[in-house]
Amino acid sequence: MGESNASLQLTPDGNLRHFLSIDGLDRAMLTRILDTADSFIEVGERSIKKVPLLRGRTVVNLFFEPSTRTRSTFELAAKRLSADVLNLDIGTSATSKGETLSDTLLNLRAMASDMFVIRHAQSGAPHFIARSVTPDVAIINAGDGRHAHPTQAMLDMLTIRQHKQTFAGLRVAIVGDIQHSRVARSQIRALNTLGVDEVRLVAPYTLLPNRPEVLGARVFSRMEDGLKGVDVVIMLRLQRERMEGALLPSESEFYRMYGLTEEKLRHAAPDALVMHPGPINRGVEIESSVADGPQSVILGQVTNGIAIRMAVMSMAMSGQLGDRQSEQGEGVQAS
């Protein structure tokens, strides 16, 4: 797994070329992304929040699945890097006319864009695009099916690092719908790569994959056990349609068993961080007083989100350019 992802995402000299998943990236690379993001946070504090790095480059936000929030942060990130941004909400309209994903991408290539930010309902769609359709365009995964949402996971890592300084020794619990969550898959991988002590999954078996242990985490059925002594609690968002597929009986029972209340949070370490990707279903996943409480970082993540996306976009563009260069046989010399 790791190997094929590494070869697809990295240039021969180990720089980022595409950002498709956390899989295949090592601790040094993840740390570099976090460090670069730190620098971009500083940029966001200036009176002019814009740097000229991607001036003259075109970034296409290619959203096959609607998501205003994620798209806006990518758009803002690209604009702060001085790139030209094109938003395409493709939805299902193109494909329902019989146009395949390959056709759509071939048409887009004519626009001579440098980067695609892709959101797609199918797991692996960005891999497919990176591999077969656009060899000279950097691909950023903005969420694919149940597979990965690596920028969201990295922004969570940035938040954890800001509060806990280091990953070593941390115990992290992820609570809720693991099975359908691309964010959870990316978070688990990132946490393990960055060297936390333990990742725990707390969920009923209907919301876990068939083989949860292969993800690199311990499974707990009860909140009381799963939260015991943890330093970070990540609450996942619960989709309403889970009630319909016989995965859960009701929101109220889910809240009773897996909702994060002040009482359940007491099992965690006293300074435990509470995180949620938002938007929050108050009273379904999390009690209002916890969501708004001192341990919660639910609202402080927007700045990090933009910084992470700026970091990943500039690094991937840089790797892509470097790669084009070396393919042309021009030596790259650092000054």
Binding site: M1, D23, S123, G124, D144, G145, R146, H147, A148, R182, R185, P209, N210, R211, P212, V214, L215
Partner: peptide
């Protein structure tokens, strides 16, 4: 197959 690969790749599994 609803196993290791499906779990990692986030693909819906056939158990």
């Amino acid at each position: 197959h609803d196993g290791v690969m499906a779990a990692r790749l986030g693909l819906p599994g056939i158990p």
